[in-house]
């Protein structure tokens, strides 16, 4: 999280305060528990439930939930539970890392553009440019230029992973940047910033200590939406043949592939859909809790 950098070095008491406040936020606690459960399920789960997500047991295709297949099977007889568990690893990793990249870039651009008048024009015109770029052809170009290089350097799966998180990160920061900038424009005219300026506080400190904490709310919302966006975008990429190899399950992909089988085997769409929603919901509540906990005005109450 970006916010840790601000508080670092302030000593244990502040962290204690933050944690105390965080604990009182019921939603945040539930969110944390659900998120921890999801993490546990996707990272430890496959060692407990050892079915191979890529094994095709074609005679058992399109089955509903049963003892042998707790969540049923897909059209090639792959075990859905195993696929959801394995798929979660990639989806969570893509969702969180891509969100972090996009948030980092977006917040940095937004803060700089909002605070420094000289940077505002160039940075915002760059944002306009990125907003205007046609995504699909851009992706095709990126894939053409970098897929084989990365595949050669890191192997097919890691290479594609790096490519995907960078693509999603690099093409989704603009909203955050614009939103943060808009808020910074208003914040920097507030009395406390004026006050800090007048006593000669360096810009870096003003931005990090005074402005950033006050624009945290929209950043947290962007983070939540960013996770969902990244998980879904990943599935769109693999549909274009730009993502992971086709036999490599991810939540978005499972949902996409299952959509047409909705009436035949509903379990195929319910579980990946639920997994994505629960993740996003829990990230949202964690974000809510964190924001409240990091806000000194609330913490005192």
């Amino acid at each position: 999280m970006t916010d840790t950098t601000i508080i670092e070095g302030k000593g244990r008491t502040l962290w204690g305060d933050v944690w105390d406040q965080y604990k009182t936020h019921k939603g945040a606690l539930i969110g944390t528990a659900v998120f921890a459960f999801i993490l546990f399920a996707v990272f430890i789960g496959p060692y407990i439930y050892t079915a191979d997500p890529q094994y095709l047991s074609i005679r058992d295709k399109n089955q509903g939930p049963s003892l042998a297949y707790p969540l049923g099977t897909d059209q090639l007889g792959r075990d859905m539970l195993a696929q959801v568990l394995h798929g979660g690893r990639v989806s969570l990793a893509v969702g969180i890392i891509a969100m972090a990249i996009s948030l980092l870039v977006g917040t940095a651009v937004g803060l700089l553009a909002g605070y420094f008048k000289k940077l505002d024009g160039p940075l915002m015109r760059m944002t306009d440019l990125f907003l205007a770029l046609p995504l699909l052809p851009l992706l095709l170009v990126i894939i053409m230029l970098f897929r084989d290089t990365l595949r050669g350097m890191f192997g097919p799966e890691t290479g594609i992973f790096i490519l995907i998180v960078s693509i999603i990160g690099a093409t989704s920061w603009m909203h955050t940047a614009r939103i943060v900038r808009g808020d910074v424009l208003a914040q920097k005219e507030r009395e406390f910033v004026m006050a800090a300026k007048s006593i000669g506080t360096p810009d870096r400190r003003i931005i990090l200590r005074h402005i950033l904490p006050n624009v945290l709310s929209p950043i947290m919302v962007s983070a939540t939406l960013g996770v969902a966006n990244a998980i879904i975008t990943e599935s769109a990429l693999s549909f274009l043949g730009l993502g992971f190899p086709s036999d490599f399950p991810t939540w978005g992909r499972l949902l996409f592939d299952g959509a047409n089988y909705m009436t035949l085997t509903p379990a195929r769409v319910v579980w990946p859909g639920l997994a994505i929603s629960l993740t996003v919901l829990s990230v949202n509540f964690i974000g809510d809790g964190l924001r409240d906990a990091l806000d000194p005005r609330i913490r005192g109450r």
């Binding site: 890529q54 094994y55 095709l56 074609i58 059209q75 090639l76 095709l140 097919p156 549909f239 274009l240 043949g241 730009l242 190899p245 086709s246 036999d247 592939d257």
Partner: peptide, 29 residues
């Protein structure tokens, strides 16, 4: 990239695995 072709790839990869041939799948727009 085509749903049926990706299903075929998955099936054929498994059969080739059974005769000791390793397969990496790739689909292109």
């Amino acid at each position: 990239t085509n749903a049926v072709r990706q299903d075929f790839q998955a099936l054929i990869k498994q059969w080739w695995g059974e005769i000791g041939i390793e397969t990496e799948l790739k689909n292109i727009d």
